[in-house]
């Protein structure tokens, strides 16, 4: 039986299209927005990679029926995405940038949620002899004097901003040494830690990411416990007046939960290897 060319092409295209549709239908549950709805949380890799969000978000979903979809990027990127309205809630750690975000009208209000701290990690051999240096500023000055390799995020993230504040306080212009002993990776925390391990370089990281990081090789925490290393996380509802697509009600419900008794308790209960990684400190009246 002869068929026309057009029919043959239709059959060919149709068959392939059918196969694709079957595949898509099989995956339907994976991408259909469920009844309870969802919000997009623009957050940082530290909260996500450490496993914190994975541990606490199901508790919120069970209570509210709202699914929280996490986009985990650097603080700078998360703020930029939220400025474009591509998120309902912002959970990051760069207070000055967060306040600017709210002041410019992109966010409704900023609330403290929790904190942890930054640490300087480096090779066991410790060529700049930082171990035991309590003063982080002195440690950085030693590092610069020794011209030991240092891997920086270099991506405008919260950790990068904290690092730049520390260098400034130490009176060191790292831009001059960029490419020499100072290496700006321009990537996320995990990638930067991989680089520092590969290079035998020092790096500044938040403690949560470090503790859950699996490729430590010989690297160790060398500088910690200084008040300048305090790392505060804040949460902000993206302004629905600026971006009508923002799910303000569900987003606010999440913020209320996370800064309320249940959310704060959930943060405190999250541990990796028996160690608490984040310390809730939302204002009590919230």
């Amino acid at each position: 039986m002869q068929t026309t060319l057009a029919k043959k092409v239709t059959i060919m295209v149709g068959t392939f299209g059918f196969l694709v549709s079957v595949l898509l239908l099989a995956l339907q549950p994976a991408w259909a927005a469920d009844g309870g709805g969802f919000i997009i949380l623009q957050s940082t890799t530290s909260t996500d990679n450490s496993g914190l969000l994975k541990a606490i978000l199901p508790k919120f979903r069970d209570k509210s029926g709202i699914e929280v979809r996490v986009v985990a990027v650097g603080t700078g990127q998360a703020i930029k995405n939220s400025t474009n309205g591509d998120g309902d809630v912002l959970l990051v750690h760069a207070k000055a940038s967060e306040e600017k975000f709210v002041a410019e009208g992109h966010g409704v209000a900023r609330t403290d949620v929790m904190y942890n701290d930054f640490v300087i990690v480096g090779p066991d051999a410790d060529p700049a002899n930082l171990k035991g240096t309590a003063d982080v500023i002195a440690a950085l000055q030693k590092l610069a004097a020794a011209e030991s390799l240092f891997a920086s995020r270099g991506d405008n993230s919260g950790t990068h901003k904290a690092e730049m504040r520390l260098w400034k306080a130490a009176g060191i212009d790292v831009a001059k040494s960029s490419g020499a002993w100072y290496r700006a990776t321009g990537s996320g925390m995990g990638a930067t830690l991989n680089t520092s391990v590969g290079l035998g370089a020092y790096a500044l990281t938040d403690r949560a990411t470090w503790l859950s990081f699996k490729n430590k090789a010989g690297h160790k925490v060398l500088v910690e416990g200084n008040p300048r290393l305090f790392n505060q996380y804040g949460i902000i509802l993206v302004n629905p007046e600026k971006h009508p697509g923002v799910k303000a009600k569900a987003g606010q419900a999440f913020i209320d939960w996370l800064t309320g008794a249940d959310g704060q308790a959930a943060i405190a209960a999250f541990k990796v290897d028996g160690k608490q990684l984040f310390f809730p400190n939302a204002p009590k009246n919230n």
């Binding site: 991408w31 890799t45 990679n49 994975k54 996490v70 830690l193 991989n194 859950s212």
Partner: peptide, 22 residues
């Protein structure tokens, strides 16, 4: 956005696990 259960695919999972040091 590499959102778990929604938009996470093989390559973004690989990137994520790399960043976790796995």
């Amino acid at each position: 956005g590499n959102i778990e259960h929604v938009t996470r695919v093989m390559t973004t999972t690989i990137a994520l696990e790399t960043s976790k040091g796995n």
